[in-house]
């Protein structure tokens, strides 16, 4: 943000405090409140139902608080009486598949994105827009088209049946585009003078890349890896079509939902929600602390 915009923001902040009741604001605030209710109430219901002993997920028909969907339950003889998360081999297996795919996706999409970005930022020809369009096109394609085309292609050409591998490839194709855009944004902020200074001091182009460009991109590589990981774990559409008879955590959740609702899905949901909230809040807190430190340094 520019200093001017920031000044504007602070000024506005003061003004809002100064102005009395503005009915337009009241309506707007009510609208925003409703919108957030709309966003959060369904999630709240889902979370709450995970702790209900009722075996169809519900909050209205409350049969007592339980953690059994998280832990499962056994009788004295050790027989499973309630199948919770730990007893659910398919979910655990699916989680393992998801992690495998995600690691593969990181390993593929980061080099793809990085190469694309380095190439496009240095390519000063008319072909660059065409290349750019082609390389970002997977992002703009419906996920199912990507899944389908990858699945058919690998079977037709190499006889590879749909499975974890094709799912990983299909995801990498579009996640690579996301990574590329992140790297391009970073490279656009790079001072070309640094590279030139490197050359001027007699460094080889490889040394310049290794000592200047790559370190400059390092934070983005880390961010891109996290984003790629999350995108991969979360993906349903593309994976669903490309994975064939195999499954990931998310496609398994989908499969369960087709056969009726189970509180075990709620339990997984609670875990997802908890991880998301912790991650989001700590991200915001870290960012704020960093901003404050920068602000303090500027003074």
């Amino acid at each position: 943000m520019t200093a001017l915009a920031q000044q504007g923001r602070e000024q506005g902040q003061d003004e809002r405090r100064a102005l009395g009741i503005d009915w337009g604001d009241v309506v707007l605030n009510a609208y925003i409140g409703l919108f957030f209710l709309y966003l959060f109430v369904p999630l709240g219901i889902m979370v709450l139902a995970a702790f209900n002993a009722n075996d169809t997920p519900s909050v209205s028909d409350w049969r007592g608080f339980t953690l059994q969907w998280f832990t499962g339950a056994t009788d004295e003889a050790g027989n499973v009486t309630v199948r919770g998360l730990p007893q659910d081999a398919r979910f655990l297996q699916g989680l393992w598949h998801s992690l495998l795919i995600a690691l593969g996706v990181i390993a593929i999409s980061i080099p793809l994105g990085l190469s694309g970005a380095l190439l496009l930022t240095r390519l000063e020809s008319k072909a660059s827009t065409l290349l750019y369009t082609l390389l970002v096109s997977p992002m703009l394609m419906p996920g199912i088209v990507l899944g389908v085309s990858t699945m058919i292609f690998w079977r037709d050409m190499f006889g590879v049946e749909a499975g974890l591998f094709t799912a990983m490839i299909a995801q990498s194709v579009f996640i690579g585009s996301y990574c590329m855009l992140m790297f391009m944004a970073r490279l656009q902020r790079q001072d070309r003078g640094l590279e030139e200074a490197g050359f001027d001091l007699g460094a080889s182009s490889f040394l310049v890349f290794q000592r200047i460009t790559l370190p400059f991109l390092m934070p983005t590589i880390a961010t891109a890896a996290v984003i790629a990981f999350l995108q991969s774990i979360e993906n349903y559409n593309t994976t669903f079509f490309a994975i064939g008879g195999n499954w990931t955590l998310v496609t398994e959740i989908g499969a369960r939902m087709r056969f009726g609702l189970s509180p075990v899905v709620n339990a997984i949901g609670v875990i997802f929600v908890a991880i998301t909230i912790v991650a989001a809040v700590s991200y915001v807190l870290l960012k704020r602390r960093r901003d404050q430190r920068i602000k303090a340094l500027r003074r």
């Binding site: 959740i253 939902m257 997802f272 929600v273």
Partner: peptide
């Protein structure tokens, strides 16, 4: 506000759908 938007955005699509299915089910909310 941003945090309020980011959290539901980050939660898996299927779980968001699942939450609504619970509401709309025959015996739902």
């Amino acid at each position: 506000l941003m945090l309020g938007l980011l959290i539901p955005y980050a939660i898996n699509e299927l779980l968001r759908i699942f939450a609504w299915t619970m509401i709309l089910a025959n015996e739902g909310m």
